[in-house]
Design a protein around this nucleic acid. Structure first.
Lengths: 253, 253
DNA sequence: CAGTGGTCTAGACCACGAT
DNA sequence: TCGTGGTCTAGACCACTGG
């Protein structure tokens, strides 16, 4: 009884499902039951065995549907106990941050960057403590301003661990973003973001051609390579000229 | 030859792998080859068939490993062609946004909210166009201020489609966040976020007890329920008092 | 055409939790 | 002990891509 389509037919389900894979139709069935309130939060779902009987799909297929919905945060499974409807949207609201150069080019504008500084320094204590333990000695330090069609939009200050990216100091960052360089040169495994709003300091105001005190978006980022912190940086966006945006699908499929 | 562990043994691989599932070890093998540069960006991977021979795992297991890595953005697959190493960190940098009340409570502080307004209105054109087509007539309109330990931190203005959440106007939002209410009352499927920095308007400044012109974090959000926009809202955070943060693991596992 | 990935099954063994 | 989920296999059919 291989390759039979038309499963799920026994249930009250069946998407008009033309070429839609079976596991996707099983997911849809479950999502519908959750969406219309048939299975409220914390409700225990039928077991895999029951769903096999209910849908006509094999256990592997049912299991795949359940696994993917679990991964998406829709369900919650406990071995030996059962499958439950998870608290809705528990971990929702994700915002994507991409390389500023890519973002500007994607908008069809011209990206430019001006390197204000590139050296190795004894970093201030605040930065060193951000690096944590074991820390790093005399990190690279770069400061640049990114512009869109000639208008400055982002100020980028960055400290980089020289042991992880020993060639950082020899790059031409007017041609290639530090971000772009680093994601290729160092295997980044983890990162942290903090977004806040600040008033433009005199230095930032000058670099971005803003009045002092103008509202700016600040993004503090740290990236890890394994257990070690690769880079600590602070991006400052000219407030009204720049924004971070995303649109995301939550559940279906 | 069921239930044999010790697969992958033929390859140069084999994690010390005690109770680690096979598919996870196959993922680890692939990630390691990518991580150490053996398989650079755009490099074509061995086919599923080859990986079966290479690892000793069954095709289903190899396929699962490849599928999950593809889903995670590490690989890129084309039917009939092959599997390739994706551009690293292509869609990285996600920031999580959670309910403000939960966030405040998680910090161990006391959340309070003051409802400034709750009614139905003819919304301004700007809002109506945000609702798009077919749009909604006379949406609910709520304005509240959230406080942490008595200090106001967030101003929330929200428009809600009355057809999707007909009881919105009868809720007590001093007890329960609109966000919290909506994620239960309406099955939200998609959302959009835009973050920017703005200077506090007179109204915002008064509500948040800030000087006029103080930098604020603005988060414009729209949520969908299926094809229909459920809510349009604007959150304004008191600049220096509030931030959005996350830490995320990128690849492994 | 041969090779690739995409899906699906029937049955198996295991670890776990509740009874 | 029994039912739950977690993993794994061997083999199958399909759709797609390339030569």
């Amino acid at each position: 009884m291989n390759t039979h389509q038309g499963a799920l037919a026994g249930a009250r389900d069946v998407l008009p499902g033309a070429a839609i894979p079976l596991y996707a139709r099983v997911k849809a069935l479950i999502l519908r039951n959750i969406g219309d309130g048939t299975w409220p939060r914390d409700r225990r779902l039928p077991s895999e065995h029951d769903l096999v009987a209910l849908t006509g799909a094999s256990r592997m297929t049912v299991h795949r549907a359940l696994r993917e919905l679990t991964h998406a945060g829709v369900l919650h499974r406990v071995q030996g106990v059962g499958t439950f409807v998870a608290a809705p949207m528990a971990r929702s609201g994700l915002i994507e941050i991409e390389d500023i150069a890519q973002e500007i080019r994607r908008r069809g504008a011209v990206h430019g960057s001006r390197v204000l500084l590139l050296d190795r320094v004894e970093a201030p204590g605040e930065v060193m403590s951000a690096f944590g333990e074991p820390g790093c000695r005399r990190p690279f330090h770069s400061v640049l301003v990114h512009s869109e069609d000639g208008t400055p939009v982002q100020h980028e200050e960055r400290y980089v661990d020289p042991e992880l990216a020993p060639d950082y100091g020899r790059q031409d960052f007017s041609a290639r973003t530090p971000f772009d360089y680093l994601i290729e040169a160092v295997p980044l495994t983890e990162f942290e973001h903090v977004i806040s709003a600040v008033a433009a300091s005199p230095a930032i105001a000058a670099a971005l051609d803003l009045p002092q005190g103008a509202p700016c978006l600040r993004l503090d980022r740290r990236t890890w390579s394994g257990a070690r912190i690769a880079t600590v940086n602070r991006l400052t966006y000219a407030g009204e000229r720049c924004r971070l945006a995303t649109r995301r699908v939550v559940s279906t499929s």
